[in-house]
Write a protein that binds this DNA or RNA. Structure first.
Length: 447
RNA sequence: CGGGGCGUAGCGCAGCCUGGUAGCGCAUCUGUUUUGGGAACAGAGGGUCGCAAGUUCGAAUCUUGCCGCCCCGACCA
């Protein structure tokens, strides 16, 4: 992409409304624009990141055996009356009336709808287990939206629903999602810690929040130090095999958010290993048994021919919120520092002097070769001054910058800057190309 | 929903108390000089002062109502 064609409205000054770094940088780097409280447009740069996050989430869901579908944003109130949640949900649910005075709602979640879909198409235990998911916009009319996309009213969420015959089988589905989540956040470049969450009236041990540690997190969290750098299952993990060891490894050490915090239990952790921090909830997995299947009559014939309600669980990832979490985790005073897998472009190619024949020629050559290697390039071909170009590229935070200009070319060199470390090296054009290509390609292969 | 704050040019703000027909910095446009980490000079364009009503000869400024946004709290499968 040529910068001269791209739409990238940057701001030098920080808008007064934005309180936290991720919100400030998303506005300054031209990634989002607020439409109303907690509602944002995704501008081209931000949308590219959102799609990358979404795609990684999708790949890991598919790997775990979940099946993608798409349910609508608008739902009928009728279904929610079946489950009893239409009244229970309260004002957080945005209620809409259509021209025929039918009661509708903008979905805050999809348990009812997916249960209806599943009951309509499933008769026998032989059709189980199944996991269905979709990635769709949700709306929750939060009393007070804040922190930009971290706590918006409209947000993009991946939600998976599992259907099993027995609680024991449901546990296996739960473990699949547990492992998929570890892999997903790891691929995004985030260190996540699963923490015990409130299971509500169902009870049991099957609810976890996945927390990314960050100073600006909304929840106070407590955990054992070893959880933070624990290696995640590799891409060769067998989702049909026994996943319990992975789960046990992660859940045997203490980790809890504020609401589940137990001081006495935490004090059993050796003092040096106790970590008290702030965290951002990026995922939540939950087993809820027959909470919806029973009232909504989502049943299958069991081995004995009798109908039994299916055992269900739901598993959410806040896709749009993750973007905020990523910036909170990866930024410095100059701007964003995107990890390669989610970067809006991989390389920022800076032509310091458009119009200079040799600079133009080499930039065009770099651009073609990088694109040919499957690398996404944002080529700054604008006539702006060098200082502005550098500052701009630092702000939007592409992982690598290649700087081409007459001064370097006089000695046959170009500069390569790694945004994350800030390291700058002088290389010949061929070396620079190999260096950058190699780094990016290897960073794109999922572990 | 309770408490607080704010709404003046694309962004950041001053002016309001003490009414007199709108200003600063950045950004934008033109020209000249510059040119490797957010240039300098000269000039230019851009605002129904959130909306409505009221007071007044006259309202960005005073009064009332409404709308919107932000912060703290409560809330957050």
């Amino acid at each position: 992409m040529y910068l001269s064609r791209f739409y990238l409205p940057l701001m030098k000054e920080t808008p007064a409304d934005a309180q936290i770094i991720s919100h400030q940088l998303m506005l300054r780097a031209g990634m989002i624009r607020q439409g109303a409280a907690g509602i944002y447009s995704w501008l081209p740069l931000g949308y590219r990141v959102l799609k990358k996050i979404e795609q990684i989430v999708r790949e890991e869901q598919d790997r775990a055996g979940a099946v993608e579908m798409l349910m609508p944003t608008i739902q009928s109130a009728e279904l929610w009356r079946e489950s009893g949640r239409y009244e229970a949900y309260g004002k957080e649910m945005l209620r809409i009336t259509d021209r025929h005075d039918r009661e509708m709602l903008y979905g805050p979640t999809n348990e009812e709808l997916v249960t209806e879909i599943f009951r309509a198409g499933t008769r026998s235990y032989k059709d189980l287990p199944k996991m269905l998911y979709h990635i769709q916009w949700k709306f929750r009319d939060e009393i007070r939206p804040r922190f930009g996309v971290m706590r918006g009213r409209e947000f993009l969420m991946k939600d998976t629903y599992s259907f099993d015959l027995t609680e024991e089988a449901a546990r296996k589905s739960y473990y699949k999602m547990f492992v998929a989540y570890l892999r997903t956040f790891n691929r995004l470049g985030l260190k996540s810690v699963p923490m015990k969450a409130d299971t509500g009236p169902i009870g049991g041990d099957l609810s976890h929040e996945f927390i990314v540690l960050a100073e600006t997190g909304e929840s106070q969290v407590y955990c054992h130090r070893e959880l933070i750098d624990m290696a995640v299952p590799g891409s060769d993990v067998d989702f049909d095999g026994d996943l319990e060891p992975f789960v046990r490894e992660r859940t045997s050490l203490y980790a809890a958010t504020d609401e589940m915090y137990d001081e006495k239990e935490f004090e059993k952790v050796p003092e040096d290993d106790r970590i008290t921090a702030r965290g951002i909830e990026v995922g939540h997995i939950f087993f809820f048994g027959t909470k919806y299947s029973a009232p909504m009559n989502c049943v299958v014939s069991g081995h004995d021919g009798r109908n039994v309600p299916v055992q269900m669980g739901s598993y959410g990832i806040g896709v749009s919120r993750l973007m905020g979490a990523l910036i909170e985790a990866y930024h410095d005073e100059d701007g964003c520092r995107w990890p390669v897998p989610v970067a809006p472009f991989h390389v920022g190619l800076i032509n310091l002097k458009p119009g200079d024949e040799e600079s133009d020629r080499l930039c065009r050559e770099f651009y073609a070769k990088l694109q040919g290697a499957g690398i996404e390039v944002l080529y700054d071909d604008t006539p702006a001054r060098p200082g502005e170009k550098f500052a701009r590229m630092d702000l939007i935070g592409l992982p690598y910058q290649m700087v081409v200009g007459p001064r370097g070319l006089a000695t046959g060199h170009v500069e390569v800057k790694e945004r994350h470390s800030g390291e700058r090296i002088e290389l010949t054009p061929d070396e620079a190309l190999d260096h950058v290509t190699g780094k990016i390609i290897s960073a794109l292969v999922p572990a």
